[in-house]
Measured scan of single mutants.
Amino acid sequence: DETGKFLVLALYDYQEKSPREVTAKKGDILTLLNSTNKDWWKVEVNGRQGFVPAAYVKFL
């Protein structure tokens, strides 16, 4: 159920650099879980949760 969740689009490829991050490919649609940090947003992609740089994604 996606009610109340926001989707964001990956603008660039991002390769995770730590276990707390997730890899995303340009064009991926990610479920935004938390955007309270202006630099790192928590997302879910391909069943995995983790952080990506906020500058790499935008709201749909």
Score class of each variant (00 low, 15 high):
Gln49Glu: 11
Thr23Arg: 05
Glu2Val: 14
Gly27Thr: 03
Ala55Leu: 10
Leu11Pro: 02
Leu11Lys: 04
Ser35Met: 14
Gly27Asp: 04
Gly4Asn: 12
Lys58Met: 14
Glu2Trp: 13
Pro19Met: 09
Gly4Tyr: 12
Gln15Asn: 13
Phe59Trp: 09
Gly4Thr: 12
Val52His: 01
Glu44Asp: 07
Lys25Ser: 09
Leu11Cys: 13
Trp40Val: 01
Phe6Gly: 10
Leu60Arg: 00
Gly47Ser: 05
Val8Tyr: 06
Tyr14Gln: 01
Phe59Met: 14
Leu30Arg: 00
Leu60Lys: 02
Trp41Gly: 00
Tyr12Leu: 09
Glu2Cys: 15
Leu30Asp: 01
Thr31Asn: 07
Leu9Val: 15
Glu21Lys: 03
Trp40Ala: 00
Phe51Asn: 02
Val45Asn: 08
Leu7Trp: 12
Thr3Lys: 14
Lys58Gln: 13
Tyr56Cys: 15
Phe51Met: 06
Glu21Ser: 07
Gly47Lys: 02
Asp13Glu: 07
Leu9Gln: 10
Glu2Asn: 14
Tyr12Phe: 13
Asn37Leu: 09
Arg48Val: 09
Glu21Trp: 08
Tyr12Thr: 06
Leu7Arg: 08
Asp13Gln: 03
Asn46Tyr: 05
Pro19Ala: 10
Pro53Leu: 12
Leu32Tyr: 02
Tyr56Asn: 08
Leu32Gln: 00
Thr31Gln: 10
Leu60Tyr: 09
Leu33Thr: 03
Lys5Met: 12
Phe6Met: 13
Lys25Phe: 09
Leu33Ile: 14
Arg48Ser: 05
Tyr12Asn: 06
Asn34Ser: 12
Ala54His: 02
Asp13Trp: 09
Gly4Ala: 11
Lys17Ala: 10
Thr23Gln: 03
Lys58Thr: 13
Ala54Pro: 04
Asp39Val: 13
Glu44Cys: 11
Tyr56Gln: 04
Gly50Pro: 00
Lys26Arg: 10
Glu44Asn: 03
Gly4Trp: 12
Lys25Val: 08
Thr23Tyr: 03
Asn34Leu: 11
Gly27His: 03
Pro53Phe: 14
Ala24Lys: 03
Glu44Trp: 05
Leu7Cys: 15
Leu11Asp: 02
Ala10Ile: 15
Lys58Ile: 14
Leu9Asn: 00
Phe51Lys: 00
Leu33Met: 05
Thr3Tyr: 13
Tyr14Glu: 02
